[in-house]
């Protein structure tokens, strides 16, 4: 049984919303990473969650940097630490907007250069920090303040984009499975090269569900098969337990959608699109895990 350290690096004074998955995720990320770690944070909810100068709720150094620049900033930091003979972990902790949209160029460059760092995208599927505007990561059918009728385009396949860079490690995780996340962060940090973890972050105010339902909502995302937990280590895919179970016997997708205000009034076409996307992804991953493709 994995021992999760008792040390806390996210202190009890964050300005996170009630039920915030981002601070929950960060709590386990930092427990796995330990104190010899620097976080690079572009504009995202975590910019706010850490508190207001001169206070900070995070007990590791945090370098806040401009929206599009996190992966590039981390590139420089990684090289500088290595030049100084330090083994400090450099972890980008970025939202979906700073990753799939404005930050993707820097992300691509850093991964192409095989920067020795870990990039974590916590994905609440919209610009949550500024009141839920759509991002490239918003799923089809979801209402945001800039898609008041529901988004008409599919969620960008970030993992496929990152995977195209042949990273040494790529994994998905979910705020509702902290042990799985903890192990994945530990494994990522044990490997050299560019590592990437994509974490689903069910956001109570953004997705419009009650704040005590965060963990449940993440579990429904996984159990319905919409969010698949897997890891790809030097190209080899492993589908993790909860998702294996979901592939055999998923809960109805409607159970996941109906609990969220953002999907209120979603039409059948969008639901079908979500279903076919997740089925397609599951099939593809299963084939990869079986070594067929």
């Amino acid at each position: 049984m994995t021992e999760i350290p008792k040390e806390e690096y996210v202190l009890k004074c964050t300005s996170a919303c009630a039920g915030c998955p981002s601070s929950l995720i960060l709590r386990y990320v930092l427990k796995a990473a330990g104190p010899d770690t620097v976080l690079v944070v572009p504009a995202c909810c975590t910019s706010v969650i850490q508190g207001i100068y001169p206070n900070t709720a995070l007990n590791v150094p945090v370098y806040n940097v401009a929206f599009a620049s996190a992966a590039a900033c981390a590139s420089g930091m990684t090289e500088a630490f290595q030049k100084a003979g330090k083994k400090t972990n450099v972890i980008v902790y970025a939202g979906d907007g700073g990753t799939v949209d404005i930050g993707i160029q820097a992300l691509s460059g850093a991964f192409e250069r095989e920067t020795d760092f870990l990039y974590i995208c916590y994905d609440n599927e919209a610009y949550g920090n500024t009141g839920m505007q759509r991002s490239g990561s918003t799923p089809i059918g979801a209402r945001t303040t800039t898609t008041p009728g529901g988004k008409t385009h599919a969620k960008k396949d970030l993992d496929a984009i990152v995977d195209a860079h042949n990273p040494s490690y790529l994994a998905t995780a979910c705020a509702s499975y902290p042990l799985d996340l903890f192990k994945k962060v530990q494994k990522a940090l044990s490997l050299r090269g560019s590592k990437f973890i994509h974490v689903l972050a069910p956001c109570p105010p953004g997705w419009r569900f009650s704040s005590e339902m965060t963990v449940e909502m993440g579990k429904l995302a996984v159990k319905s098969g919409l969010w698949i937990l897997y890891e790809r280590e030097f190209g080899k895919v492993t589908i993790n337990g909860p998702s294996k179970a979901a592939m055999i016997k998923p809960v109805p997708l409607e159970d996941y959608l109906s609990g969220q205000g953002r999907f209120k009034g979603i039409d059948q076409k969008a639901i079908d699109a979500l279903k076919s996307q997740s089925e397609l992804r599951a099939k593809h991953l299963q084939k990869e895990a079986d070594g067929i493709c």
Binding site: P35, V38, Y53, Y63, N64
Partner: peptide, 12 residues
């Protein structure tokens, strides 16, 4: 940056 003396840089 000093990991022995953590600080927030560029916070709100």
């Amino acid at each position: 940056i000093d990991v022995a003396n953590p600080a927030g840089y560029g916070t709100l």
